[in-house]
Every structure is written in C-alpha cells, then in structure tokens.
C-alpha cells in the first residue's frame, strides 16, 4: 500500500492518481461500510429519481424533452424484457430489469464522465459504484433471488424438477449453475468497470493529454455494453426459470 502512496506523490496531476483497494470506512454499530460507494450510489439514485420526477410531472400525449427520453428508455427496456422473457410474462419484470439497466448504466457513465476525483475524501476516492465488488454482488444476488422467485411462482414446487432436466445426470451441473450465474454476473461487471478505470488511470498517468481520450471513449462504450449485458442476462435467467428449458413450449 505504501507503493500506492508513492505513486500518488509522484504523479504529475493529482486528478490522475491511481487508488485501488482503499476504502472510506464508515461504522454503523459493529458494521463497516464503504462510504465512497454509497455516496456515489446515492448520487446515481438521486439522479434517476430526479429525472423521473421532472419528466413525469407534466406528461403530454405528444412527448417532448425529458418525457421523450424516458419513453424511449422504457420502450427499450420493455423490448429487452419481452425478447428475453416472452410476450406473456414480461410485464411484471420490467421494473426490476429496467432498474438494473438504468442503475448500472448511470453508475458506469457517472464514473466515466463526472470528475469525481476533484472531490477529495480523507481516504479512497469517488468512482462508479459498480467498481466495488459489494455493489455488483448485491445486484447479482438480487438477480438470483428474482429468478428463483419467478420460477417458484410460475411453476410452484415443480420448479425443482428443472434440476434433473433433461437427465438426472446433469443434476450437479444444474446446481452449479445457480452459483456460477451470480458469480459471473457480478465479476463481469466489477472487472470490466474496474479495469476500464484502471486503464484510463494508468494512461493518464503516463501521457496526460489526448492519448487517453480514445480509451475513455472505449470505456464509455464498454460501460454501456456492460449495463446492457447485465440486464439482458438477468432477463434471460428469469425467462429461463419461467419457461423451463423450453419443453413447455408446446403448451403455450
């Protein structure tokens, strides 16, 4: 960790310092919390709620401005959910999948676009909430809960039967899947966002001007794609839990 301190000292631009693995700790009771993650997540939540309130305050049949933006976003999310879950069942899942997408997307872009590092914290630094493993695991676990809930609600106790489909030999693999799904979801998002911020940070450290710009643009692209991937996979898992492995297709 002293190495990081050295690194911070010698860097030419204080904005470009690398800061990995440091956290701003808050204590609540005996529990420790990463303050920097919560601060940015509150900002993201406030931004989402603020835009929603502003856009829906005075809605018109012919949309304009923010309303248009939100309608576009909602249509996009509905399309995504409908493609993965199916026309019949997708509607109750739109809020969950939409919030996943919007929260991750706004988090990632706020980390990439807003100059958080101008605000100095006693420890650590502000960045996208999604570059903390706690956030991504929280979202992934919620996704797991969501698809279990979806499966049990739709198919009752018969949902367990999917573990021995198509043959009981696949039972271990099917059980393993329930662990790999949240694991891959959370680590994919965490790794991509952290790696992107690190690459930009390192490049800014080496060549402060202009050269990192293409990487930053690429970072914006990756961030958007990661939000889409997370939401799409969550929807796909829910759709799979509702449908079974496709063998109930004929009944529809």
């Amino acid at each position: 960790m002293e190495m990081l301190g050295v690194l911070n000292n010698i860097s030419l631009l204080p904005v470009a310092a690398l800061d990995v693995g440091h956290h701003l700790y808050w204590q609540i009771g005996g529990l420790k919390i990463h303050g920097q993650v919560l601060i940015t997540s509150w900002f993201v939540i406030a931004a989402l709620l603020g835009v929603s309130v502003l856009a829906t305050r005075n809605m018109q049949r012919v949309p304009g401005g923010l309303q248009n933006l939100l309608e576009y976003a909602l249509e996009y999310i509905r399309e995504l959910a409908r493609n993965q879950i199916g026309e019949k069942e997708y509607r109750p899942w739109v809020p969950f999948i939409g919030t996943l997408f919007l929260f991750i997307f706004v988090s990632n872009w706020s980390g990439a676009l807003l100059p958080w590092k101008l605000l100095h914290l006693p420890e650590s630094e502000l960045a996208a909430p999604t570059n903390d493993i706690n956030t991504t695991v929280a979202l992934a676990l919620l996704t797991s809960l969501a698809y279990f809930y979806a499966g049990f609600r739709k198919r009752g106790i018969g949902y367990i039967a999917k573990y021995i489909e198509p043959t009981p030999i696949l039972l271990p693999i099917n059980i393993l899947e329930d662990f790999t799904k949240p694991l891959s979801l959370s680590f994919r998002l965490f790794g991509n966002i952290l790696a992107d911020e690190l690459v930009v940070g390192v490049l800014v450290l080496l060549v402060p001007l202009f050269i990192p710009l293409p990487v930053m643009v690429l970072g914006l692209f990756t961030s958007a794609i990661q939000a889409l991937v997370f939401a799409t996979l969550a929807a796909a898992y829910i759709g799979e839990a509702i449908e079974g492995h496709g063998e109930h297709e004929e009944e529809h």
């Binding site: 529990l31 919390i33 919620l142």
Partner: peptide, 17 residues
C-alpha cells in the same frame, strides 16, 4: 481494504436497489 472487501455495503446496496 483491498479489492474483495465484502462488508455491510452489500446488504445496504441490496436494500437501496
């Protein structure tokens, strides 16, 4: 500290979400 530092941030984040 460190990258894989799980703590109460996780449940708080779930509730927030």
């Amino acid at each position: 500290g460190g990258l894989f530092d799980f703590n109460a941030t996780l449940p708080i984040m779930m509730i927030q979400f």
